[in-house]
Amino acid sequence: MRHPFTSSPRSAAGRAIAGLLLCAAATGAAAQSLTTAPPANVLVLSAEASTEVVQDLLTITLQVVREGSDAGAVQSQLRQVLDAALTEARKAQRPGQVEVRTGAFSLYPRAAPKGVGIAGWQGQAELVLEGRDLPAISALAGRLPGMSVARVGFGLSREARERVATEVSASAIARFQQRAASYAQQFGFGGWSVREVNISGGDVAPSGPMPMFRAARAMAAAPADESQPVEAGRATVSVTVSGSIQMSAR
């Protein structure tokens, strides 16, 4: 007969395991509380820099429109005009300065009166001129046979965008560092270090009204054999540096 105050080996082992589990849980909770404790003397801040630059990339889209009763004839007319314009434009091609490519080519039916049947066919073909040599592109657009201006746009070339973005990023980083040092001193700390940082931006935004509409109106009024007047606008490139710093005594 077992004494009422005598524990079995199984129950003693169970209590030992429970004690170990409680100790492990307490240790884990303490470690978690240490890792999740909010850091002290941390400051979140951001700085931004931007600059305006003249857009150096011109894009002129030319088009030819034809219509007729036969879809094949309309398509053939479009190709003839486009091929002639391409032959002339390729003579002026220079990598990066004057680039030539074809754009959209479409052909669609025109509905007859009251929507019964097809009255004919209408189509259009596009030729795109793009590059950094604005005078050469505008002159080329004015002398291509059978083509008229559909759209004009300005932008920044890849080379200019990368160069400006690098310069603006350096200015934004310098402003971030200046603010970090100033804020740390104002809070009574002698030093600081970067905890995390993020650099965003480098996008190009037009500054003021888009000049393409003024240019398009001027080009539409100019004779077909003259250089088409264009006026480049300005663009703003902005970069933001944001993050957090650890302020310290030294």
Rank of each mutant, 00 (worst) to 15 (best):
R2Y: 03
S7K: 10
R10W: 13
A13C: 07
G14Q: 14
G14F: 15
A18S: 09
L21H: 04
L22E: 01
A25T: 09
L34S: 09
T36F: 10
N41E: 09
S46W: 04
A47P: 03
A47K: 07
A49R: 06
A49Y: 09
E52F: 04
V54M: 11
L58Q: 08
G68T: 11
D70W: 13
L78K: 06
D83V: 07
A85I: 11
A89D: 03
R90F: 02
K91G: 04
Q93C: 01
Q97C: 00
E99A: 12
V100F: 02
G103P: 01
A104N: 14
P109W: 10
A111M: 13
K114Q: 15
G115K: 02
G117C: 09
W121Q: 05
Q124S: 14
A125M: 08
E126R: 12
E126N: 13
L127M: 02
V128F: 03
R132P: 00
S138H: 02
A139Y: 00
G142W: 08
G142V: 02
L144W: 05
P145N: 01
V149P: 03
G153Q: 13
G155W: 05
L156M: 15
E159T: 15
R161P: 02
E162K: 02
E167N: 11
S169K: 12
S171V: 02
A172E: 03
I173W: 15
Q177P: 00
Q178A: 13
Q178N: 11
R179M: 14
Y183A: 12
A184T: 12
Q185S: 15
Q186G: 00
G191I: 04
S193Y: 06
N198C: 02
G201S: 10
P206S: 12
S207K: 15
M212G: 15
A216W: 09
A216R: 14
R217Y: 11
A218F: 07
S227A: 15
P229T: 10
V230K: 01
A232F: 06
G233Y: 06
A235F: 03
V237W: 09
V241T: 05
S248N: 15
A249W: 11
A249F: 10
